[in-house]
């Protein structure tokens, strides 16, 4: 599916337990990118957005998308990634027209706990964010199809459970194909730079084809 073709492995600033994933854009030179060649097709899926509308492949067409996988009861990693992506959008907004900004989609893989709060959750980070969820069957299909992973843990005595999930951000192009997988840390400045260049390259390719 996604072949690790070009590894841009500039610098891993992580020390010890990989704890140095600091605040948005605090560290330079740490972005890790894996690009499928050629860009990979999205899987088939039937999901719904946080407004209850069907979420289809059409929603990817014509714009760049940053997909993040997570769950709303996640106190640490998911809010960190989502606020980082907000910083990416902010940085890009000085370089590209508003209608060319990437859309950010949060794929919520814990529908039981996520569905009731998804709209408020994503809007907390950015009014334009889209939350997407569905049945585990459809979520599994979609998440595995974008080279992601998630697994619900066993509930504890209070019925609370942990969710393991990919922390990578999947970049989908305006052709609704997967163009890249960005792995944490996700320094906002570098992600913004990467997306900006990706846009230019893609537009150039479209013109020559």
């Amino acid at each position: 599916m996604i072949r690790p073709l070009s590894f841009i492995f500039v610098l891993i600033a992580a020390v010890g337990f990989g704890m140095s994933w600091g605040a948005a854009g605090a560290q330079a030179g740490a972005l890790r990118v894996v690009e499928p060649d050629p860009p990979a097709a999205l899987p088939e899926f039937a999901l719904k957005d946080h407004r209850g509308k069907p979420f289809t492949a059409e929603r990817f067409k014509g714009k760049w998308t940053l997909l993040s996988i997570g769950f709303t009861s996640c106190p640490d990693v998911c809010p960190f990634v989502l606020s980082n992506l907000d910083a990416v959008v902010t940085q890009l907004s000085v370089r590209v027209r508003p209608d060319n900004l990437p859309q950010v989609i949060f794929v919520a893989v814990d529908p039981k706990r996520d569905a009731p709060v998804l709209g408020e959750y994503v809007r907390h980070f950015n009014d334009d964010y889209l939350g997407v969820t569905g049945s585990h069957e459809e979520l599994k299909k979609f998440v595995e199809g974008i080279d992601g992973f998630y697994r619900l843990g066993k509930p504890d005595k209070d019925g609370e459970y942990e969710v393991q999930h990919s922390a990578s951000v999947i970049v989908v192009g305006p052709d609704a194909r997967i163009h890249a997988k960005l792995s944490p840390p996700l320094p906002a400045g570098e992600v913004a730079e990467y997306i900006a260049q990706k846009r230019i390259l893609f537009a150039r390719e479209q013109r020559t084809n």
Binding site: C74, E120, V122
Partner: peptide, 10 residues
Amino acid sequence: LAPPGLKAHA
């Protein structure tokens, strides 16, 4: 500051 209604903060 966490999204409203969340049961888990850090």
